[in-house]
Design a protein around this nucleic acid. Structure first.
Length: 699
RNA sequence: GCGGCCAUGGCGGAACUGGUAGACGCGCAACGUUGAGGUCGUUGUGGGAGAAAUCCCGUGGAGGUUCAAGUCCUCUUGGCCGCACCA
């Protein structure tokens, strides 16, 4: 269907992540980026990315999938059918400590030895063919039974003289991981156990659990901790000790090597399609692979392509792909594969600081602005774009283009916007075409009942998309913005519903009316006397709000920021500007100014208009974020919880200057009527005073 | 199977390092105002008992640590997400 090639991470459930086309495996010459070169660093540096979404870090770690173990060679017995040039089988294991529990060797169907064996063996050919049929579908893999084919090859056990292990081709061994061969230890690996039970192979316990039940291996392999047994020189060791020991001995005997494996493969970056940057390479019959000289970069796509034939249009465009070889001048062919789009998105941020530059990156400007402090994106890029970009910045650092490893200092992942789905007899129905009657949903046009599906990520294919334009058209952009930020924290998935939007609109209307009912633009406000306690309390309220809002915005809690701003306005709305109280008037003005500045990022249009009510000479967007007067944050009066056995019974109010006076707090608490009543005839066992916070009486 | 995240009123969600659970809103109810109605204002709104003061219970469930647990620990249930025969 698509006639293209995808990378591993672009294949979901055996289908293309965008088109849904079925993916099959084929051999093709391709271009790869050596992302595995940085595998260790990509995984280790995750710990340093403090401001990155934790979820993304976990996903990247799993995706890179580092494991440490042993590569071990098994000698093929001389009397088996295989010719002597392939006289060992190399296996990879993370459990070298269980070597004495090995009872078979299993190799992947596409392992070179499998192929050699199959040459003269029709039954094996058939078996390998069947294994490959299962292909990439995960569903099939899940249900696939363990199957094996005995090659009749035998190998020597490397540590037990005279013991041989049979070699099977097994459908559950992957050529793409490790060496494509394993030794099977049924007692301590579930897959090996399933396989051994199927083929009646011996089960040898070599790790003994403290729990006797664990050691009776029938259908459940024991993979927990324990002592090594039945393992000659390893007996009595812990798993960790045995691992280290057997690796050491294997290396000394030159039959094995400590080894690290990654799940991550090199990044297959070439695509067989028109849309993408051409891979800047020229293929010459005499000189081989020749890079396009810098002076001829970038290689541009031809405009005059046709899409009437299947396959890559660049292949059919002879004029474009016929060029002179930069090395020898003879006629050569341009590479017609293009780059994956993720190649471009891996470095676009470095281009942004100098978009008009003639060179791809203008270093001075780039270094001034890069790397970005904060990046916001969807979780779907966790192991795609975000891993590629990390690879790119490392590669660019190594080639002296940038001076940093990590492309984005902070990463925040917003949640998905979801909506219920509706399915009628003729397919999916859009939410706006639905009417409800008695909790049942019907299609507006023909009143057919539709099935109400669960809430899912909005997508065109399921038609559960709600266009915010309808809100903007009805209520305006400010209401739409306020509404969307109000309730849900941005990292969480959001079940879209319209209820509440009306309230946001009414709220803005109320603020608007208030500003226009009271005159704010009076000159000559001078403070005549010291503010009294009530007035200071009001100021404290304002500055507490500034503090909370600032912190909330810094930590992406926009819903809490809105809450704290609204709380302030609720207080301010109760005051009316009154020139008989100049101090209060001054404070209220301070409050409203702060309000408008803090509200501006959320509802920029209305706040800018309202700013005119306060100050006609300046613009709101020129204003500084309000400063916090820290001396105001402490209340003169503290309210302290009084608990009995940890349960709240009453509160006391004390002066700030007595915040550290434990005795005072204790006495005040004990003097309360309901406390006295509660402890009558009882002596408190203990009274705990947390100064300025709580008094807990234990009885 | 492995790994991660989450669970708080009728609903969306607050709660800093353990220290007054339910901020802010939606919804709902009563009253008032206006009026055909949407509007606006005031008050109430976790559950239970009570005339009231007040008392008891309460953050999916069961235990535990602590003077004190939504928050920490163990187990468990349910939901979501990622990886998946990775040796």
């Amino acid at each position: 269907m698509d006639q293209t090639v995808l990378s591993n991470e672009q294949v979901i459930d055996g289908k293309g992540w965008r088109s849904g086309a079925k993916v099959e495996r084929r051999k093709l010459p391709q271009w790869f980026f050596r992302i595995t070169e940085f595998a260790d660093d990509l995984i280790d540096s995750l710990d340093k990315l403090d401001n990155w979404s934790k979820q993304v870090k976990v996903m990247q770690k799993n995706w890179i999938g580092r494991s440490e173990g042993l590569k071990l060679n098994f000698k093929i017995s001389k009397n088996s059918i295989l010719s002597s040039d392939k006289n060992t089988i190399e296996v990879y294991t993370t459990r070298p400590d269980t070597i004495f529990g090995a009872s078979f060797i299993a190799i992947a169907p596409d392992h070179p030895i499998s192929k050699v064996c199959a040459e003269n063996n029709k039954a094996l050919q058939k078996f390998i063919f069947e294994c490959n049929q299962i292909g990439t579908s995960e569903e099939a893999l899940e249900k696939a039974e363990k199957k094996g084919f005995n090659t009749k090859i035998k190998v020597h056990h490397p540590f037990i003289k005279g013991e041989y292990l049979a070699v099977y081709v097994a459908n559950f061994v992957l050529m793409s991981y490790g060496t494509g061969a394993i030794f099977g230890v049924p007692a301590h690996d579930q897959r090996d156990l399933d396989f051994a039970n199927k083929l009646n192979l011996p089960i040898k316990l070599v790790v003994e659990s403290k729990n006797i039940e664990d050691n009776k291996i029938t259908n459940i392999a024991y993979t927990g901790d324990g002592k090594i047994v039945n393992s000659r020189f390893l007996d009595g060791m812990t798993i960790k000790e045995a691992k280290a020991h057997i690796i050491k001995i294997s290396e000394e005997k030159h039959i094995g090597k400590k080894s690290k494996q990654f799940r991550l493969h090199d990044w297959c970056a070439s695509r067989q399609r028109y849309w993408g940057c051409p891979v800047p390479i020229i293929l010459c019959n005499d000189c081989g692979i020749v890079p396009v000289p810098n002076s001829e970069l970038p290689v541009l796509l031809p405009d005059d392509v046709t899409f009437d034939k299947s396959g890559n249009p660049l292949d059919h465009h002879k004029k474009w792909h016929t060029v002179a070889c930069p090395a020898c001048g003879n006629i050569a062919k341009r590479e017609t594969q293009t780059f994956d789009t993720f190649v471009d998105s891996s470095w676009y941020a470095l281009r942004y600081p100098s978009p008009k530059s003639k060179t791809p990156i203008e270093k001075k400007q780039m270094l001034k602005w890069s790397p970005p402090d904060q990046y916001v994106g969807g979780i779907e890029h966790a192991i795609l774009h975000l891993l590629y970009a990390r690879f790119f910045s490392r590669a660019l650092k190594k080639t002296n283009y940038v001076n940093f490893d990590e492309p984005f200092k902070g990463l925040f992942c917003q949640g998905m916007v979801c909506h219920k789905t509706y399915r009628g007899p003729d397919g999916w129905v859009e939410p706006q075409d639905i009417v409800f009657k008695n909790n049942k949903a019907f299609q507006k046009s023909n009143l057919q009942e539709v099935e109400i599906g669960r809430s899912e990520k909005m997508s065109k294919s399921k038609k559960n998309v709600v266009d915010p334009m309808s809100i903007i058209n009805t209520y305006g952009a400010d209401t739409a913005r306020l509404f969307m930020l109000s309730d849900s924290p941005p990292e969480r998935d959001l079940d879209w519903r319209i209820s509440g939007v009306d309230g946001c609109w009414k709220y803005l209307k109320k603020i608007w009316a208030h500003f226009h009912n009271y005159s704010f633009d009076k000159e000559n406000r001078t403070i005549i006397k010291e503010a009294n306690e009530n007035e200071n309390n009001l100021r404290r309220e304002i500055h507490l709000c500034i503090k909370n809002t600032s912190e909330n915005i810094e930590s992406f809690k926009y819903n809490s920021a809105v809450a704290s701003i609204r709380k302030l306005s609720n207080v301010l709305l109760t005051y009316k500007i009154n020139s008989k109280e100049p101090i209060k008037e001054q404070i209220i003005l301070e409050g409203w100014k702060s309000f408008l500045i803090m509200m501006a990022p959320i509802t920029p249009h209305i706040t800018e208009e309202l700013w005119k009510c306060i100050d006609k000479k300046t613009l709101l967007l020129e204003q500084q974020w309000p400063n916090i007067d820290k001396t105001l944050l402490k209340n003169k009066k503290l309210i302290i919880a009084v608990q009995i056995n940890g349960k709240l019974k009453n509160t006391i109010e004390i002066d700030q200057d007595k915040a550290d006076n434990q005795d005072h707090q204790k006495e005040s608490a004990l003097a309360l009527n309901n406390i006295k009543k509660a402890i009558i005839n009882k002596t408190p066992k203990k009274v705990i005073v947390v100064p300025g916070k709580v008094v807990n009486i234990v009885i």
